[in-house]
């Protein structure tokens, strides 16, 4: 399950240049920058997580622009793969509509009005 962390401490970050992207050491998190509930952050720990509007989604975001089960995050090695679960409004990675992609630090995922930034936190799990 995702654990919500420092939900009241997250601030809007400036988009970092790639050279400032951090290398992976196993831990990962999603920062929600836009959409209902933002700003907040979710630590990713489970091998598979669902992001969606459904109350039983691992990461539940209450937006009518996202599907009940919108996005699957699946652990692959030190990082996660993002997979669109045939959502109505699609999954966008850095502005491109994708079916799936392996995520790296700083990647921006857009789901309806929700903007999530993937973070490799370095806190191994």
């Amino acid at each position: 399950m995702a654990r919500r962390v420092d939900s009241d401490q997250t601030v809007i970050h400036r988009l970092e240049p790639t050279s400032a992207r951090r290398p992976s050491r196993g831990g990962a998190a999603l920062e929600q920058r836009r959409g209902p509930g933002a700003p907040r952050s979710f630590a990713l720990e489970a091998p598979e997580l669902i992001v969606g509007r459904s109350a039983d989604a691992s990461v539940c975001i209450d937006s009518h622009l996202i599907s009940r089960r919108h996005l699957l995050l699946r652990r692959v090695g030190p990082t996660y793969q993002a997979l669109d679960l045939e959502s109505s409004n699609g999954l966008f990675l850095d502005g491109v509509r994708i079916h799936s992609a392996v995520l790296f630090d700083g990647d921006e995922l857009q789901l309806g009005d929700v903007l999530l930034v993937f973070r490799e936190t370095g806190g191994g799990t």
């Binding site: 669109d84 990675l93 502005g95 491109v96 509509r97 079916h99 799936s100 992609a101 392996v102």
Partner: peptide, 13 residues
């Protein structure tokens, strides 16, 4: 036009 760089492991539908 949507422009991006192809990246390994990325899949489009």
């Amino acid at each position: 036009l949507v422009v991006f760089a192809a990246r390994e492991g990325m899949e489009l539908r």
